[in-house]
Design a binder for these strands. Sequence first.
DNA 1: CCGTCCGGCAAACAGTTGTTTACTGACTCC
DNA 2: GGAGTCAGTAAACAACTGTTTGCCGGACGG
Lengths: 208, 208
Amino acid sequence: MSSNTLGVRQAQKLKTRQALLDAGLRLLEEQSLSSLGLREVTRVVGVAPAAFYRHFRDMADLGVALVEESLGSLHVVVRAVLAEQSEAEEVIDGSVDAVAEHVALHPAHVRFIARERHGGVRAVREAIGAELDRFGDEVAEALAAQELSAGWSAGDVRMLAGLYVDHLVMTASAFIEAADAGERRRIADTARRQLRLISLGRRHWQDG
Amino acid sequence: MSSNTLGVRQAQKLKTRQALLDAGLRLLEEQSLSSLGLREVTRVVGVAPAAFYRHFRDMADLGVALVEESLGSLHVVVRAVLAEQSEAEEVIDGSVDAVAEHVALHPAHVRFIARERHGGVRAVREAIGAELDRFGDEVAEALAAQELSAGWSAGDVRMLAGLYVDHLVMTASAFIEAADAGERRRIADTARRQLRLISLGRRHWQDG
DNA sequence: CCGTCCGGCAAACAGTTGTTTACTGACTCC
DNA sequence: GGAGTCAGTAAACAACTGTTTGCCGGACGG
């Protein structure tokens, strides 16, 4: 047996835990974490209320777990975009498309992050903030490695990375609230032009 | 008697209404609108639960009223910043200072907007979105009047305005969550550099 | 001055909430 | 195979929720 084979019991436990997370995420599409009830979640899963405590201390705890799940999947996207080595214009198009695709694939995750980033539960807010900071560091590292960043101070690179991350989150949020495909195209178009303008500012940062 | 003198009764009613709004805003500093209870609000005000219905249909209704109150005060700030006619560097410093000051003066309002912009109550979300769009239009109009925007398409001006408004909101949100004065200075510094980079991109938009 | 209006009240309603308790029964491990 | 672990249960708890009802008493308008 391989070392990561789980016993029947522990596997069942993880399954229930995941069911709780899924139910929570689903219910959070139309409300905020601070109003999500423990019984509400267990009812959807089809489990007794008291069973909740076998997996999470309270709803804030479940929220923090959802942050890891939600932003974990985004990490993959960011790394893919950053790895790309091509012309600026293509990188921009690639980024926007990647974000659009990610939102289409995991709308509930993205909505959760947007909603709880400034939401009413401190622990979750801080978890999201910390994770986005890590994204910023990651992006900064990738930017620093590019020839365009020659002569830039570390602080300046970091602020540019922050601008990119913030813009990514704003774009994703906009996609989430988009009603039809036309609106999505308009958002993508605006995002591309904004990125182009930022990348233009980047190119002339050293001048004066 | 001037035409805007209110009868004793209507004056009292407005006073209670404002007390409900104030209590709601205060309670919303540590939770989201979708979890704020009607009884909770009336209890703080010191009024019977049923009295709530004399002023608002439900909590979402109160939320929408709070949006108007919160963003109304911001309108003044934006207009002041836009009216300024001086060098780019000074405009940037002025904007960031104005935002910092506004956040210091009305932290609860700003926190409310940041929290409910993507929050769990549709009507409030949409009210904030619509108002921010109006801000964007306003900024775009001001930008279009500047010589730097000569040759720009209306769409491009509007996307730049959107970038400014988004950045303003993000900066305000960051200020809100800042713990000490040092962190606030760091945020202001980053915001200034980001605005400088954007304004740099703006200056070279026409080139290539 | 008197009838009407109307903001606020007290009470009752049926549901809901989070948390604790003692329990069962299937899996685990020696 | 037998003892122990532990995820999930059912039931009870007090506390709370939004909403409706009928009523009061002071301001209003003629």
